[in-house]
Write a protein that binds this DNA or RNA. Structure first.
Length: 290
DNA sequence: CATATTTGACCAAG
DNA sequence: CTTGGTCAAATATG
């Protein structure tokens, strides 16, 4: 449910941006990647659900690789962070022998303890494609398994302090092998702050798209304007012909204006200063939105 | 050059 | 002691 709700919110939030943005393809790519990731997770989980009964006492059908989500105890414990002491240049001698290496790394590992703030598992054939960017930091042979377990952390951990991690373990040798994926800690790297969007900072025409903190403000604004349903009910097609000279313009009734102006979309667009070369102008519906 | 992966060592917990 | 998670030097990749 969480993942599906995330997809819904994602699309609802970004649909206006997608239609209005200067580089809709880029935004669409990132939106779809996000949505596919969440749907992939949701489908994997549902695939392992017991058929229908949903009787909570049906303990026999405990899905092995199911959600095991638990919420953080709501303490501020979420950010163990780097202990301030750890950053000190504590290399006693320059000869950083293997003895002094990682002298005082404050490690915490409480798997069965209480401090794994949140995690869940799923089984999937495509463990790597989840829309996030991960960096591998370890691999380990696990007793009782035939395949090594791989350890990943969020690529943006150092940049954004994102503590999300992920473990991947192959479970079998089926044609598409199944992998058990364990996610720990939610991503704290913001969707727009991470450039999961294809981002070539050298390319000037992408400049308007990448990493724009204002995007969040725009999103929030739009959500607040339209709290309930998705943003746009598509305008009745019949009223929008490809001939913009004949398509009546939409007017907003303001308190003073009792009489509506009789204009066309073309006239209105020109009044608004629409660039005739703008791609929106080629699509009457987009122009309508514009 | 920067960034990512590999891999043995390190370390906490049981 | 064993085990699993993490670190970081060495290595690979672009």
């Amino acid at each position: 449910m969480k993942e599906v709700a995330q997809v819904y919110e994602l699309i609802k939030t970004h649909q206006p941006l997608l239609l209005l943005h200067h580089q809709p393809q880029q935004l669409a790519y990132s939106l779809l990647t996000q949505a596919m990731r969440a749907l992939n997770v949701a489908l994997s989980v549902m695939k392992h659900l017991p058929p229908a009964s949903a009787s909570a006492s049906a303990s026999a059908a405990v899905p092995v690789n199911m959600i095991k989500a638990e919420e953080a105890p709501a303490n501020g414990s979420a950010t163990p962070g780097h202990d301030a002491s750890a950053a000190d240049g504590g290399d006693n001698l320059h000869a950083v022998g293997k003895a002094t290496r990682r002298s005082s790394a404050a490690k915490k590992r409480r798997i069965n303890g209480e401090d794994k703030s949140s995690w869940f598992q799923l089984t999937t054939a495509v463990p790597h494609e989840d829309g996030y960017q991960w960096r591998k930091y370890g691999e380990k042979e696990i007793q009782g398994t035939h395949f090594a377990r791989s350890y990943y952390r969020c690529t943006y951990r150092d940049d954004k302090g994102c503590q999300a991690t992920k473990q991947i373990q192959q479970k079998d040798n089926n044609d598409p092998p199944n992998f058990q994926v364990t996610y720990s800690n939610d991503h704290t790297c913001n969707f727009f702050c991470t450039n999961r969007i294809i981002n070539n900072s050298n390319s000037p025409d992408l400049h308007s798209l990448t990493v724009n903190p204002d995007d969040d403000a725009i999103c929030n604004k739009m959500i607040k304007q339209e709290p309930q349903a998705a943003w746009l009910p598509p305008p009745p097609l019949a009223t929008i012909s490809t001939n913009l000279d004949e398509t009546p313009a939409l007017h907003v009734c303001q308190e003073m204006g009792q009489q509506l102006l009789e204009t066309t979309m073309m006239e209105e667009a020109l009044v608004l200063g629409v660039d005739l070369d703008d791609p929106y102008f080629n699509d009457p519906q987009l122009l309508f939105l514009y």
